[in-house]
């Protein structure tokens, strides 16, 4: 499960939705995997305003990954300045691509900060189905 996916997920329990603590879900005992993919510079530049940056920093910290910049990078930060040539992805862009799209949770749990419910990730697939008594 890609870390960028976590930017769009929250606790499935209805009563948690109104609590800010239900996002982000916190990884627990996670085994990570790297699946390499092509870097899409236009995408990285455009996605920046959609990223919940401080929450993303929390997730990477909890996973023990290299720290992200404290503030969200700008579109210009994504490009290496090279005059007269085609745009080249900067190290910041490469690092962000690595974290958001190539790093995934293979096995482990995702815990809601509000109710404490743990969702399992098995073979890279997150299970957000709730047991009957929680629906």
């Amino acid at each position: 499960m890609k870390l960028l996916t976590l930017n769009f997920l929250t606790c499935a329990i209805k009563s948690c939705k109104s609590s800010p603590a239900s996002f982000p879900l916190h990884p627990r005992d996670a085994t990570l995997e790297i699946i390499e993919s092509d870097l899409n510079l236009a995408f990285l530049r455009n996605i920046l305003p959609r990223l919940m940056w401080s929450e993303l920093c929390t997730i990477t910290r909890e996973l023990g990954l290299p720290a992200l910049p404290e503030t969200v990078p700008t579109g210009e930060d994504m490009v290496e300045k090279k005059e007269g040539e085609e745009e080249v992805a900067s190290q910041t862009a490469k690092d962000l691509h690595r974290v958001l799209l190539e790093t995934g949770i293979r096995e482990g749990g995702l815990v809601c900060g509000n109710c404490g419910h743990e969702y399992k990730v098995l073979e890279g697939v997150g299970n957000f189905l709730l047991p009957g008594h929680l629906v």
């Binding site: 997920l9 899409n40 697939v125 299970n127």
Partner: peptide
């Protein structure tokens, strides 16, 4: 160039922010 995020096991869109 589309970015395919995950397919998660869930009930409708209950886990979507």
């Amino acid at each position: 160039h589309s970015i395919a995020l995950d397919i998660v096991n869930g009930d409708l869109a209950s886990c979507v922010r």
